[in-house]
Design a protein around this nucleic acid. Structure first.
Length: 562
RNA sequence: UGGGGCGUGGCCAAGCGGUAAGGCGGGGGUCUUUGGAACCCUUAUUCGAAGGUUCGAAUCCUUCCGCCCCAACCA
């Protein structure tokens, strides 16, 4: 049997070709290199899936390497969260947990060798002066007056930099490449700077720290990385990456390849701006369920499988892209629909009293936990005279296409009985406060012996048996598709574009008794409403549920068309 | 006005000279004790534009247009 070859993305094509040609000894080693200066988000998930995915598919390994070369921005809190998130996503680095800071001594050695070869020099220009010397996009830069220092002087200065003889900013080590290069990255890039700061792993051992452009290629080489995958903004840095590999006597020769980062509409992906939202308390921490962070998505109820599926569907290419959040939502729905048990919960309760139902009588009904999966089993759900139904499921004067309950109309209470609303009780303001109705004892289970049909089935919960719950509903965090773009365009604060309805906290929701003490993180489909996950804020008898995503709602679409 | 990357339907994305995969979304329908799920049908005479090469071009060549990235001692 012959079938069309699964199309591979360009990265996998390159890797496959290398393996076939026996390049890098036929080995594939990748790395995921986060800087521990923030929490991981769904954009990182794409990179993680690629880095670990490619390694796994070609029988290689993926290193988890913390790119911790800037002590002032980094923290252990972030390394811990990153490890949690990668693991939760389902990827394993085994014992391959590395830190650029572990290579500081080797990196320093590479730097001294470069000086000895006359390929780098200590510059003593101020940051401002250096910027002026660098030129502009259209004008070449000019050499620093310190560019011609002797090897001995450079070596002496660099050693004294390390020995803490100078304050921050006094000197830097620069690569001696070409101040007139049309690629600004190549205009004698800084390799080391002085930073008298506490590093989260090395403390005060060092006061000079390597720059990304120096540390990254060499860390890759030290680890034997073969394919160093990064995002498009590093394309211009590739010549520098190759320069470092070419001029330092490196144990291996990694190559860098770049792909387009993931963008999602109605949210932001910038770590800096995410940090801002957290610090300015516009959201409740990095794991706020409205954030596109891995920890936020986890708390919201997303599964790692759904996120991996999303990343697979989004593809890997070099085109700038903005993925519709609808695709992410589709992925969770699809996953959750298959695996999560059903339950009934009433978010905005409206009492329905069945006047012909014997007072005090309780009927235990059997309900399937999953309509498409018998192995999920059944459970007993009590039915009684007073029932809560959803306010939205009743209308005094319903429009044509509204199939649910209304005065004089019969509907089915899911898996229970056919009931008819006899009348609605209203308060002085005219608001419906309670419903009266009757049930048909012959319809236990929901089917009428006479074959009569109803157009709607409602979820419900027995009033006297219900547990109270808090339910948190989430909407998109921003009101516009491209918050960052809109903010810059309007010269406005990002915060002004926040969706005021992004979080709705509902108290006094009525849920099945078994939901009163949910297991940590337990996920359910609340029938007809959506998928929900128990929040860590839950306490015994005071459960809190996050809505992960609503069910697709044809009625809502029809209603909004009118 | 420098260098680099990229332009295939609303959003992604295959395609690698032989006559436009697939997913999401949209539209229509079947079924239904979730207005859910599932299932079926449908949605680009055209690949940023214009020329050219070729029997044949989204794929090759030329020119033009558009979008994104780069001037931190950030990564």
């Amino acid at each position: 049997m012959r079938e069309a070859a699964e199309s591979r993305d360009f990265i996998r094509e390159i890797v496959a070709a290398d393996v076939a040609a026996g390049n890098h000894g036929g080995k594939v080693i990748t790395r995921f290199p986060p800087e521990p200066n923030g929490y991981l988000h769904i954009g990182h998930a794409k990179a993680i899936c690629l880095d670990f995915g490619v390694a796994g598919e070609f029988g290689g390994h993926c290193n988890l390497r913390f790119d911790d070369t800037n002590p002032v921005k980094e923290d252990v809190e972030y390394v811990d969260s990153i490890k949690d998130d990668v693991e939760w996503l389902g990827f394993h680095w085994h014992d391959r947990e590395y830190y650029a800071s572990d290579y500081y001594e080797q990196l320093y050695g590479f730097a001294e060798r470069l000086i000895q070869k006359g390929l780098s020099y200590v510059d003593s220009l101020s940051a401002d002066a250096m910027r002026e010397h660098r030129g502009t996009l259209t004008e070449p830069g000019i050499d620093s007056p310190y560019r011609t220092r002797s090897v001995d002087e450079n070596l002496d200065l660099f050693r004294r930099m390390r020995a803490a003889e100078f304050p921050d900013g006094a000197h830097v080590l620069r690569a001696k490449i070409d101040m007139r290069s049309p690629n600004i990255t190549m205009r004698d890039p800084v390799l080391y700077r002085i930073r008298h700061a506490d590093h989260h792993r090395t403390g005060r051992t060092w006061c000079i720290y390597p720059m990304y452009d120096f540390a990254h290629p060499l860390s890759d080489a030290i680890e034997g990385v073969t394919h160093s995958l990064c995002t498009l903004e590093y394309v211009d840095h590739r010549p520098l990456y190759d320069w470092a590999i070419a001029h330092c006597e490196t144990p291996s020769t990694p190559r860098q390849y770049e792909f387009a980062r993931l963008n999602l509409n109605y949210t932001i992906m910038s770590k800096r701006k995410l940090l801002q939202l957290v610090e300015q308390k516009h959201v409740n921490g990095w794991d706020d369920p409205r954030l596109p962070t891995i920890s936020g998505l986890r708390r919201r109820g997303f599964t790692p499988e759904s996120i991996r599926d999303f990343c697979a569907r989004v593809g890997v290419a070099k085109k700038e892209n903005v993925i519709d959040v609808g695709l992410l939502e589709h992925c969770v729905r699809e996953d959750l629909n298959r695996r999560v048990p059903r339950a009934m919960a009433v978010l905005r309760p409206l009492k329905l009293v069945l006047t012909n139902y014997p007072d005090g009588q309780v009927d235990e009904l059997d309900m399937v936990n999953h309509p498409d999966d018998p192995s999920a089993g059944t459970r007993r759900v009590p039915f009684s005279r007073e029932i809560y139904i959803e306010r939205d499921d009743f209308m005094l004067d319903p429009p044509k296409k509204f199939f649910r309950l209304a005065p004089g109309r019969e509907v089915r209470l899911r898996n229970a009985y056919l009931v008819t609303c006899t009348h609605a009780i209203r308060n002085e303001a005219g608001e419906v406060v309670e419903l009266r109705g009757t049930y048909d004892p012959a319809t236990r289970g929901g089917d009428a012996p006479d074959g009569r049909k109803v157009k709607a089935t409602l979820h419900w919960v027995s009033a006297q048996h219900a547990a109270d719950a808090e339910v948190r509903l989430y909407e998109r965090l921003f009101t516009v598709e491209d918050p960052e773009g809109a903010a810059t365009k309007a010269n406005a604060e990002l915060a002004t574009l926040l969706n005021p309805a992004s979080l709705a906290v509902l108290q006094g929701c009525k849920v099945e008794a078994m939901l009163g003490r949910p297991a940590a993180g337990a996920r359910y489909q609340f029938e007809r409403l959506g998928y929900f996950a128990a929040d860590p804020d839950s306490r015994d008898g005071a459960p809190v549920f996050n809505r992960t995503v609503s069910l697709k709602d044809t009625w809502a679409r029809v209603a909004s068309r009118e």
